[in-house]
Design a protein around this nucleic acid. Structure first.
Lengths: 225, 225
DNA sequence: GATTAGTTTTAGGTTAACCTAAAAATTGGG
DNA sequence: CCCAATTTTTAGGTTAACCTAAAACTAATC
């Protein structure tokens, strides 16, 4: 059905780490991934090159790591598998969280589609998860797992919401300018309004009101708070 | 509890292959293992060297591959894991035999003790297997899986049983002599009687009656028919 | 006992996935 | 703007697990 890319286990691990880090922090840096997987940063770098070649991430030298459309899809799939396995082991077999997680990690790469979908069937029947479109939405422990880990840029944020700056992706002069405005990492930003065409965008940072051009805002990576 | 040897996945695969081949054929040769695992014979050879170093098999140059006590134990454990996983996937989840077997193969190396024993618990509760000592005896499909894969030598065979010659392990003159007696690979042998101390042993091969010294019989690898 | 077919071993390579150490670039503060 | 700390990249290993091709050995027949 799809253009199947056959990733090695370790490349799948990298992708999954990126997915989880973006979900948690809004960005995934080389060192974050290295810490997450407990391997050297230089090894991560090599892995990222391969993911880049496969078109799953896009990354310029020293630039931020972004998932492409297909990368996001692939990562989401792996994430789903992990989650399903985790729930299966932890909830239905009663395996400790630690081991369930660890086992999910080692198995997620290897299990056949059939076994996987039989597990899903079983979990649906026993009401641990609900089927929804082609992905799965978990409703265990009342915690809904949102399946979004795409990078959010400031120009895409709805008026009225509050976000936190993760990174400024531009370089040089523009970056300097934005940072001088107080848009540093960790800065809380509220989107006050947008002009009809979405340009300019009115924001409030550290008490000051600012107006940004849309392409400037598009350089600012944020996360929900 | 035990002296844990940490085997790599591929060494576990070799060990399992040896176990299964001995169980089926009475012996495991390099080419058999290579065919079984679908890899080159020279790769198997390298693997066997490592198993030898770990003390799990004993093998002289060009000689037969024998499991040591600890090798047998390790192989049996892997075999058990495989079987348990296979039953779990096939019987309780309804996964096809082919995929259940394949998945068992890829998972058996990675799964934590805890998950494994939780699966066993589940299978016992649902009556798919019965606990017996520390190993497990499967009683699915009325077929009892015997947990013996140790090499049988002709001197250990009970009076009255019929066996088939798999290999003569000695070399040179003695080997020649035994082969001239008709004890070639595939020859059917019936053990007619043993003297009080087990020496000599009376056998019948290809219609002839022969008498063997015990240490001669100990060189003849046989399998049950 | 010599020959041929088959098996096992050796020799020498490749690849993926890691590593350490050091160089290059970026970040953030003064 | 400059400097120190941090991050990212490069350069140059190592190891396990495979491979092919050829050599050494064994088995089985004539």
């Amino acid at each position: 059905m799809e253009a199947e890319i056959n990733l090695s286990e370790s490349l799948e691990d990298y992708l999954e780490a990126i997915f989880n880090l973006i979900k948690e922090n809004g960005s995934a840096r080389v060192t974050d991934i290295a810490r997450y997987l407990e391997i050297a940063a230089s090894s991560v770098n090599q892995g990222l090159k391969k993911l880049n070649q496969e078109g799953l991430i896009s990354q310029e030298k020293y630039g931020p790591i972004k998932l492409t459309k297909s990368g996001f899809k692939a990562a989401e799939k792996i994430y789903c598998r992990h989650k399903i396995l985790y729930i299966f082991f932890n909830k239905t077999l009663g395996v400790s969280k630690k081991n369930a997680d660890q086992d999910a990690c080692s198995i997620e790469h290897a299990l056949s589609e059939e076994s996987f979908s039989k597990m899903v069937e079983y979990l649906i029947k026993n009401n641990y998860i609900e089927k929804k479109n082609c992905a799965f939405e978990m409703n265990t422990e009342k915690e809904e797992v949102k399946m979004t880990a795409e990078q959010l840029m400031l120009d895409k944020i709805k008026v009225g919401s509050k976000v936190e700056v993760v990174k400024i992706e531009s370089k040089g002069r523009l970056k300097r300018k934005l940072m001088d405005m107080g848009l540093n990492r960790g800065a809380k930003v509220e989107v006050k309004g947008k002009a009809p065409m979405g340009d300019p965008i009115e924001i409030k940072v550290r008490g000051y009101s600012l107006s940004l051009r849309r392409d400037e805002a598009a350089e600012i990576l944020v996360k929900e708070v």
